[in-house]
Write a protein that binds this DNA or RNA. Sequence first.
DNA 1: ACCTCATTTGAATATTTGTTCATATATTAA
DNA 2: TTAATATATGAACAAATATTCAAATGAGGT
Lengths: 126, 126
Amino acid sequence: MNKYSNEVIKIKEDSEITIIHDDIIKKVKKKMLDDNIIIDLAELFKVFGDSTRMKIICALLQEELCVSDIANIIGSTESAVSHQLRILKQAKLVKYLKVGKIVYYSLDDDHVLQIFEKGREHIEEI
Amino acid sequence: MNKYSNEVIKIKEDSEITIIHDDIIKKVKKKMLDDNIIIDLAELFKVFGDSTRMKIICALLQEELCVSDIANIIGSTESAVSHQLRILKQAKLVKYLKVGKIVYYSLDDDHVLQIFEKGREHIEEI
DNA sequence: ACCTCATTTGAATATTTGTTCATATATTAA
DNA sequence: TTAATATATGAACAAATATTCAAATGAGGT
């Protein structure tokens, strides 16, 4: 009886849910992270999941930059960049420093680089 | 003359692009990752950026599981899970083993856990 | 061969989300 | 205070995407 054994518990409950591996399901359910944490995690990665924002992050990995410089570097409009910076700000991925009319953005913490690097490692292996 | 100096080069080119920090822009542009790599990176993180897929990943971090078990654990339908597993498969984040009618899914490599953990570290600090 | 069951697939729908454009805010200089 | 400029913001539109439902595969058991 290995883990792929066919001696599975099979219950049809209310003609809705088919439970195949009852004990494993219970065990995994118990260990699952709280739904809110999972949702927060997905929200965080969603922020990384857009190429405009990724370009902004990539630029800020090199240098603290103002909105118009970022727009110039990544080839986008100031408005689009500003909209995306707002999302990055909300996710606490970037911070900013206002000097006169100019707002300088920079990465907020180490995790950004670390997450970025782990992502790179993954795509490089494919 | 510090890095926030107001002695910035300001050029209005073709009434289209305003260049504020010319030298910095050139420097950062030179160091920017290739666009295709950035797009691939964003695509990868997009896969993490959905709560259904994140729940699937979270469950698979505990145990190799079949489609119907995953559906049961995360409270979704088999169809929805299958659709999302296809996306996870394409991103090489999960692999599978077919045993008879049942298909067992598991995480494909270490990076999944590492990216997951870095994300957790970030949201826990907020 | 036929039936059952686990999974996959495709099309339709509803929702989310990024960009654009116009406008607003805020700061500096004249 | 008026003009100019950097950034932010809101609404509208277009594109992307997750879920649902129905139907199709494909494998085992009878």
